[in-house]
Every structure is written in C-alpha cells, then in structure tokens.
Design a protein around this nucleic acid. Structure first.
Lengths: 144, 144
DNA sequence: TTTTTATCAAGAATTATTCTAAATAATAAT
DNA sequence: ATTATTATTTAGAATAATTCTTGATAAAAA
C-alpha cells in the first residue's frame, strides 16, 4: 500500500522519552492508509472515526511528533495548510493549481536534485525538494 | 544589481486597467534594491522610509499586483511568511534552517528540473521549483 | 506507593494574510 | 470642464491555520 518501510508504528522510536500512545498510533495508521496527503483537519476527521474523543490539538501534536521522529513527512506548498505524507521514499510533489490536490511524483534516476543546483560556498545543504505546479489529470481534462 | 530585466517599473504593464501608482513604484524599487528576500512586513518598513503614510495592507496589495503582473516573484518556504524576490532569472532558493534567511542559488545548466521528475499522465506541469534546506554560510560557520 | 514526567483536551492566543468600507484619486465620458 | 466611473488607498475588522496554556490524566521511575 504505502511506501513506508516501517511495518507498523511499534517499530518507530520516537526518541527522547516520548511514548507510543493510542492517539499517535491512530494518526500514523490514518496516514499509512491515505494516498491523498491530508491536512491536519482531514486527519482529525478520519481519526475521529476510530476515536471520537480525540482533539484537533492532539492531532497536531501527534503529527509533529511523528514528523520529528521521521515516521512521516510534512509537505508545505505555497501558502496552503500543511499536508502530511506517509511515503518516505525520495520523491517530489505535484501540486494542482485548480483543486489544490497533491500527488507524489517519482524522481528520474540519475537526476539528483543535488547536482542540479550550485550550493553557495560554505553553506551546508541538508535537504532537497522538488515541486511541480500545474493541473492534475482530473482538472486538466475539464474544459474551463 | 538585480537580475530583473525590467529597467524600471514604467516598463511594466500591470494589465487589466491597473494603474501605476507611487506606492507600487516604491514597493517595486525596494525589491530591486534588496537581495535578501524581504517579507511583506520588511518591505513595509523599508517603503515607510520614503512614504510614511503607506499602510501594510497597501504593501500587500502592491506585492500581489506586482506578482500577478510577473514583475516580481513570491517565495514560499515551509510555514514561514511569504518572501518576495526581484530576481526573475530562473533560479532556486536556499533556505537556512537556523536563521530563516533565503539565498538565491543558480541552477546548473542542462539540469532542467522538468527532466528530473516523472509527471503523471494527463497532468499539465506549468512551474518547477527547486528548494534546498540547510545552513547558510554564516550559520554553518558558527559552532553550535 | 509516591514522585516524576509525558500526554491529552479544550479553549485562548498568535500571526500572516485577506476582507470591508469609506475616502481619495485617476481616468473616461459627456 | 464637469460628471460619472473605476481603481486605489487606508484603517481596522475578520479569518484561518497553528501554537500555546492550563489543568486533568496516565504512564514510568523511584
């Protein structure tokens, strides 16, 4: 299903005395089942199906913790709400200008982002990010 | 100084009945003089030196208009406030995780972002964006 | 147990940005 | 020129995503 090598959340070490909790487990599970890069509010709604008492603040906390632990990725495109992604493989994102949906896109082999860019002297590059903006297949098909 | 081919704002066609105004002129001039990708609030402070009566809302309006006209670029990185950039040449951005500064970085020739990525069938890609995150030269030099 | 530490939940607070409405200014039409 | 139209500016209110605060709960350590 998802490309996350973590079989299940039990194998995640949250680090620093952080505990695995039912809430964190559920948030992680929702992301493993999602292909659509949900926002925190969307994760909240989905998690509520399994645990009605959970709060939005807790969902934010869980997402932050999981991102810090490297179990999921946070995706920020333009000024829109953050989205979350369970796919830990290196990949880029396609962002639809019409419907705001986000699609994972594969990186071509040998086309390392690190080689496409000239890093300033003395700077230490840590992460590379490629984003494409345009119309997703659904929206491109529509006339208007 | 800047890599914007528009010699001055008079040559900009804002389109759609939009007028060139003193405020828009000043906002554009500030960006032409800036290499540091200022936020709207920073542009506001700089413009205030020349026109004390200008309001923050107007700076936002002017920035939006200039972005729509293609005279400047808006740069959104992570969840931070939008920054604005007078450099219209194709380039990428380096984003310092310590001090949040943004540096323009050059793209290697032949390393077109469009070739490094596999666009989904049916999607229409319009813009490509490459961002690098890490420590800028200043921050990399510091111990901590 | 008792103590410590982490977590959760609800709602308040924050902050960048957008919206509203009234005043002003520029342009077009008469 | 005068009037009518349209765009712009401004101040402040509104919005919305996210973070913070606080008290209660729960787990882990002593």
């Amino acid at each position: 299903m998802s490309k996350n090598p973590l079989k299940n959340i039990e194998s995640i070490n949250l680090g620093g005395g952080h505990r695995m909790t039912p809430q964190r487990r559920l948030v992680f599970d929702v992301l493993m089942k999602s292909q659509d890069h949900p926002t925190a509010a969307e994760v909240f709604m989905r998690v509520k199906n399994s645990m009605d008492s959970i709060s939005l603040a807790t969902v934010y906390n869980c997402l932050d913790t999981l991102v810090s632990a490297g179990a999921i990725k946070q995706v920020n495109l333009d000024r829109e709400p953050s989205r979350y992604c369970g796919n830990l493989e290196p990949h880029a994102h396609f962002h639809c200008e019409s419907c705001s949906s986000v699609l994972d896109i594969e990186l071509n082999e040998g086309a390392e982002a690190s080689k496409s860019v000239i890093i300033p002297k003395g700077a230490k590059a840590e992460k590379f990010e490629v984003a494409v903006r345009g119309k997703c297949p659904k929206c491109a098909r529509r006339k208007n």
